[in-house]
Design a protein around this nucleic acid. Structure first.
Lengths: 230, 230
DNA sequence: TAGTGTGAAGCCATTCACAGCG
DNA sequence: CGCTGTGAATGGCTTCACACTA
C-alpha cells in the first residue's frame, strides 16, 4: 500500500530503532534525539536522521522525535495492513526451533503450516503445529493466501522453493546453504549459518569491526547489517 | 598468519564459491571459468575475478581456474591453521538446534562447551555435549583457548558476552536481538532472525531483488550478502 | 576468439556540514 | 545554543572495458 521502497539496510535499521523506541515508550519517555536513538545501537546520529527522513517523519529541533508518533509512523510504513501468513518447510532441529521462535512472535505474521518429507514426522505436532506432507503445500498456500515461505531443509531439498513460488509465495527466508533460483519478483533473504560461523572464525583470527542484522546488499549480493562494534 | 584482511562480503562470497568448487572437485571437473563459478550463485563474472584476485590466485585465460588449486588457495587463506574452539551459551530451542547444526560441521571448528543458566538444563546432554553452568564459562574458554562464542539467549541475557570477551573470546556470533557492547578488537556477527523475517514480510509486499548470506556492512552497520535474485 | 587481470569509472550508502528553527 | 533536515562530499564495493595471453 504505502510503498516507500526502502532498501535492505535502512529497513533493518528501522526495525532495530523500533525495538529501542518500544522500550522508551514503556518507560514513558516522550522524546528522543537522534544520537540517543542511534548511540546504543551503534548507528551514527546522521544515519538515524537520514533513516527517519526516509520514513517521512519529521522531528522537532528542540525536542527531538516524539516516540509514540515515530512508532506510529513506523507501523504505518513497515507493517502489513493485515496479518500475513507464512509456511515453513523442514521440521528438523533448526526448522522446529524456528517454528517455536516465530510462533506468537508477532501478531502480524502467522505460521499457518509446517511441512516435511519425512513420513515419521508427518502427523506429529511441532510446537503447536501439525506437520504435514509436502503435497499439501500448494493447497495450504493458496487457501491461506500465504506470501512468506521459510525454508529450513538441507541444501539438496531446497528445490521446494519452486512449489512455494508457483503457489504464490512472494518472499522467502532461506536457511539452506544454496542459491535459490526464483523469478525476479520474488524476494529471497538468505541466512547462511555456515557462512556466518566461518566468517566469525576468520575474523576472530584477523580483525575487528562488527555488524548487525542479517541481510544482504545492493541488488543481490548478500545481506547487510545494522550496527557496529564499539 | 596469512592476513589478507578480506572484507565481509568478499569473505562471504569466497565461502560460497568454495561450496560449488567442492562439488566440482567431487565431479572431477578440473577447471572452471569465472562465469561458470558465479552464474549459479548469482554473482557476476567480473565479481568472481575480482574476488579471486583478492585471494592472490591466478587463473589461466585459456582454461579458467584450476579447481583443486583454487580450493587449496582458499584453504590457505580462509581456514585456521589449527582447529578453532567455540562455546555456545543458551541451550534453548534455538541454541540446541545450533549445537546439532555446528557439531561435526567442520573439523576446523569444534564446540567445546554448552552453557545455560537454567538449573533444569544443567547436567543434561545437548546433542552430545553436557550442558554446564555459566560459572564454568571463563575456565572452559581459557583452558581450551576458545576464540569463538555463540550467543543464543534471550535479549536480556546477552550481557554474557562480557564474560566471554574477558575470558579471551575474539569473535562472537550473536543471535540475541540486541546490540552487543564489546571492545573494538572483538568481532561481532549479528544474526537477527527478527529483522530477517520482518524484512521478508515487508519485501513480500513491496518489491523484489534478493540477497545472500547474512552479514553486515562496512565498518559496522549490519550484515551483507552474497548473491542476488535472478 | 574467449577469458583473465586490473586500472578506471560508476553507483550507492554513509558521513559531513551547514542553514534553519525553536 | 543544540538539534533537525538535507544538499554536497566521501568512500568503498561493483561493474566496465580493454590490454594481454593461450
Amino acid at each position: 500500500v504505502t510503498q516507500h521502497r526502502l532498501n535492505r539496510q535502512t529497513l533493518a535499521r528501522l526495525m532495530v530503532y523500533r525495538r529501542l523506541l518500544e522500550q522508551l515508550r514503556a518507560s514513558e519517555t516522550d522524546y528522543v534525539f537522534s544520537h540517543a536513538l542511534g548511540g546504543p545501537l551503534g548507528v551514527t546520529a546522521a544515519q538515524v536522521r537520514r533513516d527517519v527522513m526516509e520514513l517521512g517523519y519529521l522531528g522537532n529541533p528542540a525536542k527531538g522525535y516524539r516516540v509514540i508518533d515515530l512508532l506510529d509512523r513506523m507501523a504505518a510504513v513497515l507493517d502489513a495492513a493485515e496479518s500475513q501468513a507464512a509456511v515453513l518447510v523442514g521440521a528438523g532441529r533448526l526448522g522446529s526451533a524456528l517454528v517455536s521462535y516465530f510462533t506468537n512472535w508477532s501478531p502480524k505474521l502467522k505460521i499457518v503450516g509446517v511441512f516435511d518429507t519425512d513420513p515419521a514426522k508427518i502427523g506429529t505436532e511441532v510446537y503447536g503445529h501439525a506437520c504435514r506432507k509436502l503435497s499439501d503445500l500448494p493447497r495450504v498456500i493458496k487457501r491461506n493466501k500465504v506470501d512468506v515461505g521459510i525454508i529450513a531443509v538441507p541444501a539438496d531439498a531446497a528445490a521446494v522453493v519452486k512449489t512455494m513460488v508457483d503457489a504464490g509465495v512472494r518472499g522467502v527466508l532461506n536457511f539452506a546453504p544454496v542459491q535459490l533460483n526464483v523469478p525476479d519478483e520474488v524476494y529471497v533473504e538468505q541466512v547462511d549459518l555456515t557462512v556466518s560461523i566461518e566468517r566469525v572464525a576468520y575474523m576472530a583470527r584477523s580483525g575487528s569491526a562488527a555488524a548487525l542484522p542479517g541481510g544482504s546488499d545492493p541488488g543481490n549480493p548478500g545481506s547487510d547489517d545494522v550496527a557496529s562494534s564499539r
